[in-house]
């Protein structure tokens, strides 16, 4: 555990009854970094986020945030954190503006300052015209945007976002990415979980892939792709007769084949060349697509699961 890390965790375990949701993970996140947690449903990402946001107490292991122990210094740490929980926790009966004004008081921020920040944040969340509406009347995506705005009220040094863009439309997503870039440029450290691989590739300097409570890989997105996947991927879809008859015949051309219910993924160096070879065997895929490897492929390789959801 390096002492200059903004956040470090060692041997982190979270147990619910007999079930280990987080099973001994080590991470170390530096100031100014943006760090991702990827993993399939139930991998233990949210359980981890809750521990490293100094809310839930680890069953075992040690955490240091800003060099402090969250067990003994929770309030001091949380004063400097922003948290976007996976599930919104907004005050549905209150107006959009009051959600921010009242939440700010939890941080003991002077009223005038809160109002000024709230106005600016509503602008960013594109909710200025809904400021006086009851929060319950917002759409799901708007609530998400309000939650994100709320997490920035105390100008956090470390922002922890648990699937921040789930439910956002593409425009709102890009707006958030933009804001996150700016925060990062201003020195804010970001921790993000997401199911969108493009988001992870765009936003994260470094990430870990979690599966069943453990970290199964760690590195920069490009490095992970190089390590766990080939340069290109050939995706083949077969028509009515199905893909089974071809799997064996085609496999020898690829370093690795993933058989998905609706398509075959061939991990290869040169997709076009392999496609010609496939055609030469007499196989007639209904469609063929050559693309570069992505984190999606790393994820599939490591967890055996796709992320189409």
């Amino acid at each position: 555990m390096t002492s200059d890390s903004l956040l470090s965790a060692r041997g982190l375990v979270k147990q619910f009854g007999n079930f280990r949701a987080v099973d001994g993970i080590d991470v170390s996140i530096e100031r100014g970094e943006s760090f991702g947690f990827l993993g399939p449903n139930g991998a233990g990402k949210t359980s981890t986020m809750r521990m490293i946001s100094a809310v839930s107490q680890p069953t075992a292991g040690e955490i240091r945030i800003f060099g402090l122990n969250p067990v003994s210094h929770g309030p001091e740490i949380r004063a400097r954190l922003g948290v976007v929980p996976q599930e919104d926790t907004l005050e549905l009966e209150l107006s959009v503006m009051n959600n921010l004004l009242m939440f700010g008081r939890y941080f003991d921020i002077p009223r005038k300052v809160i109002r000024q920040r709230a106005t600016e944040l509503l602008e960013f969340a594109q909710l200025s015209d809904r400021a006086d509406d009851k929060c319950d009347n917002l759409s799901g995506g708007m609530k998400r945007r309000l939650t994100i705005a709320r997490s920035l009220l105390n100008q956090p040094e470390l922002l922890i976002l648990d699937e921040p863009t789930t439910g956002l439309d593409p425009q709102a997503r890009h707006l958030l990415w933009d804001r996150l870039y700016r925060l990062k440029r201003d020195g804010v450290t970001l921790i993000i979980t997401t199911h969108y691989m493009d988001e992870a590739e765009q936003l994260c300097d470094r990430l870990v892939v979690m599966d069943q409570g453990r970290i199964v890989a760690e590195g920069a997105p490009r490095a992970l792709i190089e390590q766990y996947s080939t340069r290109e991927v050939l995706e083949l879809r077969f028509g009515a007769e199905g893909q089974e008859p071809y799997v064996d015949r085609i496999s020898e051309y690829a370093e690795r084949v993933e058989v998905l219910p609706d398509r075959l993924l061939l991990y290869v160096h040169d997709g076009d060349e392999v496609l010609r070879a496939v055609h030469a065997t007499g196989a007639t895929p209904e469609s063929a697509l050559v693309r570069r490897s992505s984190l999606e492929d790393v994820f599939l390789r490591l967890t055996g699961r796709t992320l189409v959801d």
Binding site: G74, E76, V83, P85, T89, E91, F103, Y106
Partner: peptide
Amino acid sequence: HAAVATPL
């Protein structure tokens, strides 16, 4: 849950 994510 929102409140305990603050200093409270």
